[in-house]
Design a protein around this nucleic acid. Sequence first.
DNA 1: CTGTGTTCGTTGCTAAATGCAACTAAGGAG
DNA 2: CTCCTTAGTTGCATTTAGCAACGAACACAG
Lengths: 212, 212
Amino acid sequence: MPFTRLEFAVFAVREGTLQVLLARRAEAPHAGRWALPGGVLRVDLDASLDAAAQRVATERLGAPLPLLRQLCAVGGPQRDPRAPWALSVVYRGLVPADAPDFSAGKRIEALAWRSVDEAIAAPLAFDHATLVDKAVRAMRADIDVLDLPFGCLPEAFTLGELQSFCEHVLGHPLDKSSFRRRLSDRDLLVPVEGEFRVGAFRPAQLFRGPRA
Amino acid sequence: MPFTRLEFAVFAVREGTLQVLLARRAEAPHAGRWALPGGVLRVDLDASLDAAAQRVATERLGAPLPLLRQLCAVGGPQRDPRAPWALSVVYRGLVPADAPDFSAGKRIEALAWRSVDEAIAAPLAFDHATLVDKAVRAMRADIDVLDLPFGCLPEAFTLGELQSFCEHVLGHPLDKSSFRRRLSDRDLLVPVEGEFRVGAFRPAQLFRGPRA
DNA sequence: CTGTGTTCGTTGCTAAATGCAACTAAGGAG
DNA sequence: CTCCTTAGTTGCATTTAGCAACGAACACAG
Protein backbone atom coordinates (compact mmCIF):
# COMPACT_ATOMS: atom_id res chain seq x y z
CA MET A 1 0.00 0.00 0.00
CA PRO A 2 1.36 3.40 -0.94
CA PHE A 3 2.00 6.40 1.27
CA THR A 4 -1.45 7.37 2.50
CA ARG A 5 -2.52 10.74 3.81
CA LEU A 6 -5.71 12.13 5.28
CA GLU A 7 -6.43 15.73 4.35
CA PHE A 8 -9.06 18.14 5.59
CA ALA A 9 -11.05 20.89 4.02
CA VAL A 10 -12.48 22.48 7.15
CA PHE A 11 -14.81 25.43 6.80
CA ALA A 12 -16.40 27.98 9.08
CA VAL A 13 -18.45 31.10 8.66
CA ARG A 14 -16.28 33.85 10.08
CA GLU A 15 -16.21 37.58 9.57
CA GLY A 16 -19.27 37.34 7.40
CA THR A 17 -17.79 34.97 4.83
CA LEU A 18 -17.13 31.32 4.31
CA GLN A 19 -13.55 30.56 5.25
CA VAL A 20 -11.35 27.51 4.97
CA LEU A 21 -8.65 26.44 7.38
CA LEU A 22 -5.20 26.39 5.80
CA ALA A 23 -1.86 25.25 7.14
CA ARG A 24 1.54 26.53 6.19
CA ARG A 25 3.69 23.53 5.56
CA ALA A 26 6.81 23.16 7.66
CA GLU A 27 8.47 20.52 5.51
CA ALA A 28 9.04 19.58 1.91
CA PRO A 29 7.35 19.25 -0.41
CA HIS A 30 5.95 22.75 -0.78
CA ALA A 31 7.58 23.88 2.50
CA GLY A 32 6.34 27.33 3.47
CA ARG A 33 3.31 27.20 1.20
CA TRP A 34 -0.29 27.11 2.25
CA ALA A 35 -2.12 23.84 1.95
CA LEU A 36 -4.92 21.86 3.47
CA PRO A 37 -3.94 20.43 6.83
CA GLY A 38 -3.51 16.68 7.00
CA GLY A 39 -1.34 13.84 8.12
CA VAL A 40 -0.39 10.29 7.36
CA LEU A 41 -2.35 7.14 8.01
CA ARG A 42 -0.91 5.00 10.79
CA VAL A 43 -1.72 1.36 10.26
CA ASP A 44 -0.72 0.62 13.84
CA LEU A 45 -3.15 3.14 15.30
CA ASP A 46 -6.13 3.57 13.02
CA ALA A 47 -9.11 1.22 13.07
CA SER A 48 -10.70 2.73 9.96
CA LEU A 49 -10.33 5.65 7.59
CA ASP A 50 -12.82 7.68 9.57
CA ALA A 51 -11.00 6.93 12.79
CA ALA A 52 -7.73 7.87 11.14
CA ALA A 53 -9.25 11.17 10.09
CA GLN A 54 -10.28 11.94 13.65
CA ARG A 55 -6.87 11.02 15.01
CA VAL A 56 -4.99 13.14 12.49
CA ALA A 57 -7.34 16.07 12.99
CA THR A 58 -6.79 15.96 16.71
CA GLU A 59 -3.02 15.72 16.34
CA ARG A 60 -2.58 18.42 13.78
CA LEU A 61 -5.31 20.85 14.70
CA GLY A 62 -5.56 20.35 18.42
CA ALA A 63 -9.24 19.44 18.36
CA PRO A 64 -11.48 16.69 17.00
CA LEU A 65 -13.71 17.56 14.06
CA PRO A 66 -17.31 16.50 14.25
CA LEU A 67 -19.32 16.23 11.05
CA LEU A 68 -16.43 15.07 8.90
CA ARG A 69 -17.55 13.63 5.58
CA GLN A 70 -15.45 11.92 3.00
CA LEU A 71 -15.01 13.99 -0.12
CA CYS A 72 -12.89 11.88 -2.44
CA ALA A 73 -9.60 10.07 -2.81
CA VAL A 74 -6.82 11.19 -5.11
CA GLY A 75 -3.50 9.62 -5.84
CA GLY A 76 -0.61 9.30 -8.21
CA PRO A 77 3.14 8.91 -8.50
CA GLN A 78 4.02 12.60 -8.58
CA ARG A 79 1.80 13.60 -5.73
CA ASP A 80 4.49 13.66 -3.08
CA PRO A 81 8.25 13.42 -3.63
CA ARG A 82 8.68 11.59 -0.32
CA ALA A 83 7.15 8.46 -1.82
CA PRO A 84 7.01 6.90 -5.26
CA TRP A 85 3.24 6.86 -5.08
CA ALA A 86 1.01 8.87 -2.75
CA LEU A 87 -2.66 8.60 -1.98
CA SER A 88 -4.81 11.14 -0.17
CA VAL A 89 -8.25 10.58 1.25
CA VAL A 90 -9.85 14.00 1.57
CA TYR A 91 -12.46 14.86 4.17
CA ARG A 92 -14.61 17.93 4.42
CA GLY A 93 -15.98 19.47 7.58
CA LEU A 94 -17.82 22.50 8.85
CA VAL A 95 -17.29 23.90 12.32
CA PRO A 96 -18.95 26.63 14.39
CA ALA A 97 -17.49 30.11 14.17
CA ASP A 98 -16.99 30.08 17.92
CA ALA A 99 -15.16 26.75 17.92
CA PRO A 100 -12.12 26.56 20.15
CA ASP A 101 -9.29 27.85 18.08
CA PHE A 102 -7.20 25.24 16.39
CA SER A 103 -3.55 25.06 17.27
CA ALA A 104 -0.89 24.09 14.81
CA GLY A 105 0.42 20.61 15.49
CA LYS A 106 3.27 18.57 14.12
CA ARG A 107 4.81 19.60 10.83
CA ILE A 108 2.66 22.71 10.57
CA GLU A 109 4.18 26.17 10.87
CA ALA A 110 0.93 28.06 11.17
CA LEU A 111 -2.79 27.73 10.77
CA ALA A 112 -4.99 30.42 9.32
CA TRP A 113 -8.49 30.97 8.11
CA ARG A 114 -8.79 32.31 4.61
CA SER A 115 -11.90 33.13 2.60
CA VAL A 116 -12.70 30.40 0.10
CA ASP A 117 -12.60 32.79 -2.83
CA GLU A 118 -9.03 33.73 -2.03
CA ALA A 119 -8.09 30.14 -1.30
CA ILE A 120 -9.37 28.84 -4.61
CA ALA A 121 -7.60 31.60 -6.49
CA ALA A 122 -4.39 31.32 -4.45
CA PRO A 123 -1.59 29.00 -5.47
CA LEU A 124 -2.17 26.39 -2.79
CA ALA A 125 0.16 23.42 -2.63
CA PHE A 126 -0.62 20.25 -4.55
CA ASP A 127 -4.11 20.29 -6.07
CA HIS A 128 -5.61 21.70 -2.92
CA ALA A 129 -7.34 24.63 -4.59
CA THR A 130 -9.31 22.15 -6.67
CA LEU A 131 -10.17 20.18 -3.58
CA VAL A 132 -11.41 23.28 -1.77
CA ASP A 133 -13.65 24.05 -4.69
CA LYS A 134 -15.00 20.53 -4.77
CA ALA A 135 -15.65 20.55 -1.03
CA VAL A 136 -17.52 23.86 -1.21
CA ARG A 137 -19.74 22.49 -3.95
CA ALA A 138 -20.50 19.40 -1.88
CA MET A 139 -21.40 21.47 1.18
CA ARG A 140 -23.68 23.68 -0.86
CA ALA A 141 -25.38 20.68 -2.43
CA ASP A 142 -26.07 19.33 1.05
CA ILE A 143 -27.70 22.56 2.15
CA ASP A 144 -29.72 22.77 -1.07
CA VAL A 145 -31.44 19.55 -0.08
CA LEU A 146 -31.73 20.67 3.54
CA ASP A 147 -29.10 18.27 4.83
CA LEU A 148 -28.09 20.85 7.40
CA PRO A 149 -25.01 20.92 9.64
CA PHE A 150 -26.77 21.41 12.95
CA GLY A 151 -23.53 20.75 14.78
CA CYS A 152 -22.27 24.13 13.60
CA LEU A 153 -24.93 26.03 15.48
CA PRO A 154 -25.59 26.43 19.18
CA GLU A 155 -27.54 23.64 20.89
CA ALA A 156 -30.65 25.74 20.40
CA PHE A 157 -30.91 28.34 17.68
CA THR A 158 -33.42 30.63 16.01
CA LEU A 159 -34.64 30.28 12.46
CA GLY A 160 -32.99 33.56 11.63
CA GLU A 161 -29.64 32.27 12.84
CA LEU A 162 -30.03 29.04 10.87
CA GLN A 163 -31.00 30.86 7.70
CA SER A 164 -28.17 33.34 8.02
CA PHE A 165 -25.67 30.53 8.49
CA CYS A 166 -26.94 28.72 5.38
CA GLU A 167 -26.80 31.92 3.37
CA HIS A 168 -23.18 32.45 4.27
CA VAL A 169 -22.25 28.94 3.24
CA LEU A 170 -24.23 29.14 0.03
CA GLY A 171 -23.00 32.60 -0.81
CA HIS A 172 -26.43 33.92 -1.71
CA PRO A 173 -29.59 34.99 0.16
CA LEU A 174 -32.55 32.71 0.75
CA ASP A 175 -36.22 33.54 0.90
CA LYS A 176 -37.44 33.60 4.47
CA SER A 177 -40.92 32.20 3.99
CA SER A 178 -39.79 29.56 1.53
CA PHE A 179 -36.95 28.44 3.78
CA ARG A 180 -39.27 28.08 6.75
CA ARG A 181 -41.92 26.23 4.74
CA ARG A 182 -39.42 23.71 3.45
CA LEU A 183 -38.13 23.11 6.96
CA SER A 184 -41.52 22.61 8.53
CA ASP A 185 -42.81 20.44 5.67
CA ARG A 186 -39.99 18.03 6.40
CA ASP A 187 -40.23 18.15 10.19
CA LEU A 188 -36.56 18.96 10.44
CA LEU A 189 -36.76 21.07 13.56
CA VAL A 190 -38.24 20.77 17.01
CA PRO A 191 -39.24 23.97 18.77
CA VAL A 192 -38.03 24.31 22.34
CA GLU A 193 -41.37 25.23 23.86
CA GLY A 194 -41.33 28.42 25.84
CA GLU A 195 -37.71 29.21 25.07
CA PHE A 196 -36.83 32.37 23.23
CA ARG A 197 -33.74 34.25 22.17
CA VAL A 198 -34.19 37.67 23.70
CA GLY A 199 -32.33 40.72 22.55
CA ALA A 200 -32.82 44.16 21.26
CA PHE A 201 -35.91 43.27 19.24
CA ARG A 202 -38.78 40.83 19.17
CA PRO A 203 -37.81 37.56 20.88
CA ALA A 204 -37.35 34.59 18.55
CA GLN A 205 -38.45 31.00 19.12
CA LEU A 206 -35.58 28.60 19.77
CA PHE A 207 -35.31 25.27 17.94
CA ARG A 208 -33.22 22.12 18.08
CA GLY A 209 -32.18 19.86 15.26
CA PRO A 210 -33.82 16.49 14.68
CA ARG A 211 -33.22 13.34 16.82
CA ALA A 212 -32.02 15.63 19.61
CA MET B 1 0.96 3.00 2.44
CA PRO B 2 -1.27 0.03 3.12
CA PHE B 3 -2.47 -2.67 0.77
CA THR B 4 -4.65 -0.78 -1.71
CA ARG B 5 -7.38 -2.24 -3.84
CA LEU B 6 -9.66 -0.85 -6.52
CA GLU B 7 -13.16 -2.32 -6.50
CA PHE B 8 -16.01 -1.97 -8.95
CA ALA B 9 -19.74 -1.84 -8.60
CA VAL B 10 -20.69 -2.25 -12.25
CA PHE B 11 -24.34 -2.18 -13.20
CA ALA B 12 -26.40 -2.94 -16.28
CA VAL B 13 -30.07 -3.16 -17.10
CA ARG B 14 -30.57 -6.78 -18.09
CA GLU B 15 -33.60 -9.03 -18.19
CA GLY B 16 -35.76 -6.12 -17.21
CA THR B 17 -33.99 -5.34 -13.96
CA LEU B 18 -30.98 -3.53 -12.65
CA GLN B 19 -28.17 -6.00 -12.17
CA VAL B 20 -24.72 -5.80 -10.66
CA LEU B 21 -21.64 -7.68 -11.80
CA LEU B 22 -20.28 -10.02 -9.15
CA ALA B 23 -17.18 -12.17 -9.07
CA ARG B 24 -16.70 -15.44 -7.24
CA ARG B 25 -13.44 -15.17 -5.42
CA ALA B 26 -10.79 -17.75 -6.25
CA GLU B 27 -8.57 -17.03 -3.26
CA ALA B 28 -8.75 -16.28 0.41
CA PRO B 29 -10.17 -14.34 2.04
CA HIS B 30 -13.75 -15.31 1.34
CA ALA B 31 -12.70 -17.85 -1.31
CA GLY B 32 -15.69 -19.16 -3.20
CA ARG B 33 -17.94 -16.32 -2.12
CA TRP B 34 -19.42 -13.62 -4.31
CA ALA B 35 -17.96 -10.17 -4.12
CA LEU B 36 -17.41 -7.06 -6.17
CA PRO B 37 -14.64 -7.55 -8.71
CA GLY B 38 -11.45 -5.65 -8.10
CA GLY B 39 -7.70 -5.80 -7.94
CA VAL B 40 -4.70 -4.24 -6.33
CA LEU B 41 -3.10 -0.90 -7.07
CA ARG B 42 0.27 -1.21 -8.79
CA VAL B 43 2.50 1.72 -7.93
CA ASP B 44 4.80 0.77 -10.81
CA LEU B 45 2.05 0.89 -13.41
CA ASP B 46 -0.64 3.32 -12.38
CA ALA B 47 -0.39 7.05 -13.03
CA SER B 48 -3.47 7.90 -10.96
CA LEU B 49 -6.33 6.28 -9.13
CA ASP B 50 -8.57 6.61 -12.15
CA ALA B 51 -5.94 5.09 -14.40
CA ALA B 52 -5.47 2.28 -11.92
CA ALA B 53 -9.19 1.63 -12.01
CA GLN B 54 -9.14 1.33 -15.78
CA ARG B 55 -6.16 -1.00 -15.73
CA VAL B 56 -7.64 -3.31 -13.10
CA ALA B 57 -11.01 -3.36 -14.84
CA THR B 58 -9.39 -4.37 -18.07
CA GLU B 59 -7.30 -7.07 -16.42
CA ARG B 60 -10.01 -8.62 -14.34
CA LEU B 61 -13.05 -8.16 -16.51
CA GLY B 62 -11.55 -8.34 -19.97
CA ALA B 63 -12.82 -4.92 -21.02
CA PRO B 64 -12.36 -1.27 -20.09
CA LEU B 65 -15.20 0.44 -18.26
CA PRO B 66 -16.24 3.84 -19.51
CA LEU B 67 -18.18 6.14 -17.19
CA LEU B 68 -16.46 5.02 -14.02
CA ARG B 69 -17.05 7.33 -11.08
CA GLN B 70 -15.47 7.21 -7.68
CA LEU B 71 -17.90 6.16 -4.99
CA CYS B 72 -15.90 6.19 -1.78
CA ALA B 73 -12.87 4.81 -0.01
CA VAL B 74 -13.03 2.36 2.87
CA GLY B 75 -10.31 0.85 4.94
CA GLY B 76 -9.33 -0.81 8.16
CA PRO B 77 -7.11 -3.42 9.74
CA GLN B 78 -9.52 -6.33 9.51
CA ARG B 79 -10.54 -5.72 5.97
CA ASP B 80 -8.25 -8.29 4.41
CA PRO B 81 -6.23 -10.94 6.25
CA ARG B 82 -3.49 -10.75 3.65
CA ALA B 83 -2.39 -7.41 5.02
CA PRO B 84 -2.40 -5.72 8.41
CA TRP B 85 -4.32 -2.82 6.97
CA ALA B 86 -6.28 -2.71 3.72
CA LEU B 87 -7.74 0.19 1.82
CA SER B 88 -10.25 -0.01 -1.02
CA VAL B 89 -11.18 2.76 -3.39
CA VAL B 90 -14.57 1.87 -4.80
CA TYR B 91 -15.76 2.90 -8.23
CA ARG B 92 -19.22 2.65 -9.71
CA GLY B 93 -20.08 2.20 -13.36
CA LEU B 94 -22.99 1.55 -15.65
CA VAL B 95 -22.62 -0.33 -18.91
CA PRO B 96 -24.92 -1.10 -21.83
CA ALA B 97 -26.92 -4.31 -21.69
CA ASP B 98 -25.38 -5.38 -24.96
CA ALA B 99 -21.83 -4.77 -23.80
CA PRO B 100 -19.31 -7.39 -24.80
CA ASP B 101 -19.49 -10.00 -22.12
CA PHE B 102 -16.92 -9.71 -19.43
CA SER B 103 -14.52 -12.58 -18.99
CA ALA B 104 -13.18 -13.62 -15.64
CA GLY B 105 -9.56 -12.62 -15.24
CA LYS B 106 -6.91 -13.34 -12.67
CA ARG B 107 -8.01 -14.55 -9.25
CA ILE B 108 -11.65 -14.74 -10.27
CA GLU B 109 -13.44 -18.08 -10.60
CA ALA B 110 -16.51 -16.77 -12.30
CA LEU B 111 -18.38 -13.61 -13.15
CA ALA B 112 -22.13 -13.28 -12.98
CA TRP B 113 -24.82 -10.66 -13.15
CA ARG B 114 -27.19 -10.63 -10.24
CA SER B 115 -30.17 -8.37 -9.58
CA VAL B 116 -29.33 -5.65 -7.10
CA ASP B 117 -32.12 -6.65 -4.74
CA GLU B 118 -30.66 -10.12 -4.42
CA ALA B 119 -27.14 -8.79 -4.20
CA ILE B 120 -27.92 -6.43 -1.36
CA ALA B 121 -29.74 -9.15 0.54
CA ALA B 122 -27.14 -11.84 -0.20
CA PRO B 123 -24.18 -12.39 2.08
CA LEU B 124 -21.57 -10.84 -0.16
CA ALA B 125 -17.96 -10.87 0.95
CA PHE B 126 -16.56 -8.00 2.99
CA ASP B 127 -18.97 -5.07 3.21
CA HIS B 128 -19.81 -5.30 -0.46
CA ALA B 129 -23.57 -5.45 0.01
CA THR B 130 -23.39 -2.04 1.67
CA LEU B 131 -21.27 -0.73 -1.16
CA VAL B 132 -23.73 -1.97 -3.77
CA ASP B 133 -26.51 -0.20 -1.96
CA LYS B 134 -24.53 3.01 -1.77
CA ALA B 135 -23.64 2.83 -5.46
CA VAL B 136 -27.26 2.29 -6.47
CA ARG B 137 -28.31 5.35 -4.50
CA ALA B 138 -25.61 7.43 -6.15
CA MET B 139 -26.67 6.31 -9.63
CA ARG B 140 -30.29 7.10 -8.91
CA ALA B 141 -29.39 10.53 -7.54
CA ASP B 142 -27.55 11.25 -10.79
CA ILE B 143 -30.55 10.33 -12.88
CA ASP B 144 -32.86 12.35 -10.65
CA VAL B 145 -30.95 15.46 -11.64
CA LEU B 146 -30.75 14.36 -15.28
CA ASP B 147 -27.06 13.54 -15.16
CA LEU B 148 -27.67 10.72 -17.60
CA PRO B 149 -25.31 7.91 -18.62
CA PHE B 150 -25.51 8.35 -22.36
CA GLY B 151 -22.68 5.90 -22.83
CA CYS B 152 -25.02 3.11 -21.82
CA LEU B 153 -27.27 3.63 -24.78
CA PRO B 154 -26.68 3.19 -28.50
CA GLU B 155 -24.99 6.06 -30.32
CA ALA B 156 -28.45 7.26 -31.29
CA PHE B 157 -31.52 6.41 -29.28
CA THR B 158 -35.19 7.26 -28.97
CA LEU B 159 -36.76 9.09 -26.07
CA GLY B 160 -38.69 5.96 -25.25
CA GLU B 161 -35.50 3.95 -24.98
CA LEU B 162 -33.87 6.58 -22.79
CA GLN B 163 -36.87 6.80 -20.49
CA SER B 164 -37.18 3.06 -20.18
CA PHE B 165 -33.52 2.76 -19.31
CA CYS B 166 -33.84 5.40 -16.59
CA GLU B 167 -36.92 3.71 -15.20
CA HIS B 168 -35.10 0.43 -14.87
CA VAL B 169 -32.22 2.05 -13.03
CA LEU B 170 -34.51 4.05 -10.77
CA GLY B 171 -36.83 1.14 -10.13
CA HIS B 172 -39.97 3.16 -10.69
CA PRO B 173 -41.85 4.61 -13.68
CA LEU B 174 -41.45 8.18 -14.92
CA ASP B 175 -44.01 10.47 -16.45
CA LYS B 176 -43.52 10.72 -20.19
CA SER B 177 -44.43 14.36 -20.72
CA SER B 178 -42.59 15.57 -17.65
CA PHE B 179 -39.47 13.61 -18.56
CA ARG B 180 -39.43 15.03 -22.07
CA ARG B 181 -40.07 18.57 -20.87
CA ARG B 182 -37.22 18.41 -18.38
CA LEU B 183 -34.88 17.14 -21.08
CA SER B 184 -35.77 19.78 -23.63
CA ASP B 185 -35.75 22.63 -21.11
CA ARG B 186 -32.13 21.78 -20.40
CA ASP B 187 -31.09 21.18 -24.01
CA LEU B 188 -29.67 17.82 -23.09
CA LEU B 189 -30.37 16.11 -26.37
CA VAL B 190 -29.76 16.77 -30.02
CA PRO B 191 -32.19 15.27 -32.50
CA VAL B 192 -30.62 13.47 -35.42
CA GLU B 193 -32.61 15.19 -38.14
CA GLY B 194 -34.39 12.83 -40.47
CA GLU B 195 -33.34 9.70 -38.62
CA PHE B 196 -35.93 7.44 -37.10
CA ARG B 197 -36.08 4.13 -35.34
CA VAL B 198 -38.45 2.09 -37.48
CA GLY B 199 -40.17 -1.00 -36.21
CA ALA B 200 -43.55 -2.50 -35.73
CA PHE B 201 -45.21 0.80 -34.83
CA ARG B 202 -44.86 4.50 -35.38
CA PRO B 203 -41.24 5.49 -36.10
CA ALA B 204 -39.48 7.38 -33.34
CA GLN B 205 -37.09 10.30 -33.67
CA LEU B 206 -33.50 9.45 -32.88
CA PHE B 207 -31.38 11.61 -30.57
CA ARG B 208 -27.79 11.90 -29.47
CA GLY B 209 -26.40 13.00 -26.15
CA PRO B 210 -24.84 16.44 -25.65
CA ARG B 211 -21.37 17.48 -26.87
CA ALA B 212 -21.57 14.72 -29.47
C1' DC C 1 -46.41 57.56 27.73
C1' DT C 2 -45.81 57.51 22.88
C1' DG C 3 -43.62 57.17 18.68
C1' DT C 4 -39.84 54.72 15.97
C1' DG C 5 -36.86 51.27 14.40
C1' DT C 6 -35.76 46.54 13.96
C1' DT C 7 -36.48 41.76 13.82
C1' DC C 8 -39.97 37.83 14.04
C1' DG C 9 -43.44 35.26 12.09
C1' DT C 10 -47.20 34.79 8.94
C1' DT C 11 -50.14 35.48 4.95
C1' DG C 12 -51.55 36.17 0.12
C1' DC C 13 -50.34 36.11 -4.38
C1' DT C 14 -47.45 34.96 -8.52
C1' DA C 15 -44.65 32.12 -11.18
C1' DA C 16 -42.53 27.89 -12.15
C1' DA C 17 -42.09 23.03 -12.08
C1' DT C 18 -44.19 18.72 -11.97
C1' DG C 19 -47.82 14.97 -12.31
C1' DC C 20 -51.86 13.14 -14.58
C1' DA C 21 -54.78 12.11 -18.27
C1' DA C 22 -56.34 12.56 -22.57
C1' DC C 23 -55.71 13.27 -27.34
C1' DT C 24 -53.87 12.87 -32.17
C1' DA C 25 -50.28 10.79 -35.33
C1' DA C 26 -48.06 7.04 -37.62
C1' DG C 27 -47.03 2.70 -38.86
C1' DG C 28 -47.93 -2.68 -39.36
C1' DA C 29 -50.99 -6.66 -39.11
C1' DG C 30 -54.99 -8.76 -40.32
C1' DC D 1 -60.22 -0.32 -43.75
C1' DT D 2 -60.00 -1.43 -38.90
C1' DC D 3 -57.46 -2.40 -34.93
C1' DC D 4 -53.47 -2.35 -32.07
C1' DT D 5 -49.43 -0.33 -30.30
C1' DT D 6 -46.12 3.09 -29.70
C1' DA D 7 -44.76 8.24 -30.55
C1' DG D 8 -45.45 12.79 -29.48
C1' DT D 9 -48.23 16.66 -27.84
C1' DT D 10 -51.62 19.20 -25.26
C1' DG D 11 -54.48 20.92 -21.42
C1' DC D 12 -55.21 21.07 -16.74
C1' DA D 13 -54.61 20.13 -11.74
C1' DT D 14 -51.37 19.97 -8.13
C1' DT D 15 -47.34 21.09 -5.94
C1' DT D 16 -43.46 23.95 -5.06
C1' DA D 17 -40.80 27.92 -4.76
C1' DG D 18 -40.18 33.05 -4.96
C1' DC D 19 -41.78 37.76 -3.87
C1' DA D 20 -43.89 41.26 -1.21
C1' DA D 21 -46.37 42.90 2.29
C1' DC D 22 -48.39 42.77 6.79
C1' DG D 23 -49.11 42.76 11.90
C1' DA D 24 -46.63 41.46 16.30
C1' DA D 25 -43.19 42.10 19.82
C1' DC D 26 -39.67 44.40 21.98
C1' DA D 27 -36.07 48.22 23.13
C1' DC D 28 -35.13 52.68 22.94
C1' DA D 29 -35.53 57.79 22.46
C1' DG D 30 -37.99 61.63 23.30
